[in-house]
Design a protein around this nucleic acid. Sequence first.
DNA 1: GTTGAACCGGAGGGGTGCCTCCGCTAGAGT
DNA 2: ACTCTAGCGGAGGCACCCCTCCGGTTCAAC
Lengths: 192, 192
Amino acid sequence: MTTPSFPVSAIVAAQRPHRKDAARNFDALLAAAREAFAENGADASLEDIARRAGVGIGTLYRNFPTRRALFESVYADEVDALCQAALEVADREPWEALTAWLDRFAGYMVTKRAVREALEGESEILGVCRDSMYAAGGPLFERAQQAGEARPDMDFGDLLRMVAGISATHFTDDEQRDRVLAIALDGVRTRR
Amino acid sequence: MTTPSFPVSAIVAAQRPHRKDAARNFDALLAAAREAFAENGADASLEDIARRAGVGIGTLYRNFPTRRALFESVYADEVDALCQAALEVADREPWEALTAWLDRFAGYMVTKRAVREALEGESEILGVCRDSMYAAGGPLFERAQQAGEARPDMDFGDLLRMVAGISATHFTDDEQRDRVLAIALDGVRTRR
DNA sequence: GTTGAACCGGAGGGGTGCCTCCGCTAGAGT
DNA sequence: ACTCTAGCGGAGGCACCCCTCCGGTTCAAC
């Protein structure tokens, strides 16, 4: 809610109703949905989400006519936060800034896997989210490439998928996840 | 059905009924389930699976009393095939044998993600499958380590999760998946 | 060929989720 | 303060799924 610097920020803002009570319900639904999707996966019950949010099922459907619409809003909200995070690490050293942001990215992916999976396939909003994400994180990667720290024969998209895939997997503990991520990032780093 | 060299092979064999018609139905159900799970994810309809297999729903329940039991059988069957694959590559060079098998592993994971996810959590059969998988693929990795090709500060479990995570992710095309996998494996390979 | 045990199919009861529709409520503008 | 419109909740119809149960069928052993 600070500086809406990315296109994705406008999406959620545009959907939020103006009336006070309606806006409150909108926020509660988004939060409840985020929670339910993280907990029960992509096919969490919409009636359960409405219940969690403390609103009627009708209110849910008025704000989000389809299940997909709800997914898109939750996802866009999430991506927006991630974009803001990129701004916060921008003043560190190239490689460290990149890995710090990827770390945050990995953290989001653990819980958000359900939403992303459901949105797989065409979706206009998904495109905007992708663009925002690339606009936010891409420069970090390119800076690392120009500093000779990241290999030049891959692009930011390759990197994101790699991190997303690994971080969405089930590990015995967080330590193992970090270890594996570090090894894979070793493949990204330029050899000396 | 060639050489049942791994403990997992015994699991499916033990469940298969002896009467001719019953065995046929059992096989049809397993195939239908594999298909349905790959297509619709972990919560595919059991009635739909019975329909695909051309048997009554009652027959499905007789062979697999719970959804979990069905998952376990499908998964065990799959793992068995993967174990056999490890034997087939054993006579190649250390690093090449390892990557060839991982390639096969990745291929299975793309479609089998649903099953693995549903089985997440405790399950005796899952333990046996894991053991068989390690018995089959582990030696390939250790051989590569001893040949000085793979880094010594990780174990086979780390490697499998890494490949599983990446290969289960959605990519724009198979080429990108292969590229990303290769980069990550670069992190596994010993630096010269 | 006979027989009985194992196996078969699917109807049906109970449960849950999806989505629409409409009588009621409360915020926002004057 | 008044109004009127945007917004609210949830009952209810429909669809689908889970799982049990039992009368009929088929295999295989003798």
